[in-house]
Simulated scan of single mutants.
Amino acid sequence: MSSSNGEKHPFLDDLADDAELRGTVLRRPVSGRDNIRRLVEAVGTLYAAQTSTFYGAIDQRHFLQYKATLRAGLDLEAVGVIERDDTGLVRRVAMTFAPLDAALSLSAGLAGVVGKEFGDDLFYDASVNKVATS
Results as ranks from 00 to 15, higher is better:
residue 90 V to S: 01
residue 54 F to E: 09
residue 49 A to F: 10
residue 27 R to F: 08
residue 95 M to H: 08
residue 63 F to I: 08
residue 109 G to A: 06
residue 132 A to L: 11
residue 39 L to M: 08
residue 111 A to Y: 02
residue 2 S to R: 03
residue 80 G to A: 09
residue 125 D to A: 07
residue 88 G to N: 13
residue 101 D to Y: 07
residue 111 A to Q: 06
residue 59 D to A: 14
residue 61 R to T: 14
residue 21 L to D: 00
residue 62 H to I: 10
residue 33 R to F: 05
residue 28 R to C: 11
residue 41 E to P: 02
residue 37 R to I: 07
residue 119 G to A: 04
residue 108 A to G: 09
residue 112 G to C: 09
residue 28 R to W: 10
residue 71 R to A: 13
residue 8 K to S: 07
residue 99 P to E: 06
residue 55 Y to G: 03
residue 21 L to S: 00
residue 41 E to K: 05
residue 3 S to W: 00
residue 15 L to W: 00
residue 24 T to N: 04
residue 12 L to P: 01
residue 69 T to F: 02
residue 49 A to V: 11
residue 44 G to F: 00
residue 22 R to A: 13
residue 103 A to P: 01
residue 7 E to K: 14
residue 57 A to I: 11
residue 83 E to V: 08
residue 12 L to M: 11
residue 88 G to Q: 11
residue 103 A to F: 01
residue 16 A to I: 04
residue 85 D to H: 05
residue 87 T to Q: 12
residue 94 A to Q: 06
residue 49 A to M: 15
residue 73 G to W: 09
residue 97 F to R: 01
residue 72 A to R: 05
residue 29 P to A: 11
residue 134 S to D: 14
residue 3 S to E: 04
residue 7 E to P: 06
residue 88 G to P: 07
residue 50 Q to F: 03
residue 11 F to G: 00
residue 111 A to D: 06
residue 52 S to K: 09
residue 96 T to Y: 07
residue 110 L to M: 12
residue 65 Q to Y: 09
residue 56 G to D: 08
residue 132 A to S: 14
residue 103 A to Q: 01
residue 105 S to A: 14
residue 80 G to C: 05
residue 40 V to D: 00
residue 81 V to L: 09
residue 74 L to G: 05
residue 95 M to S: 06
residue 107 S to N: 07
residue 31 S to A: 13
residue 134 S to F: 15
residue 66 Y to A: 03
residue 123 F to W: 06
residue 86 D to F: 14
residue 28 R to T: 12
residue 121 D to W: 07
residue 19 A to Q: 01
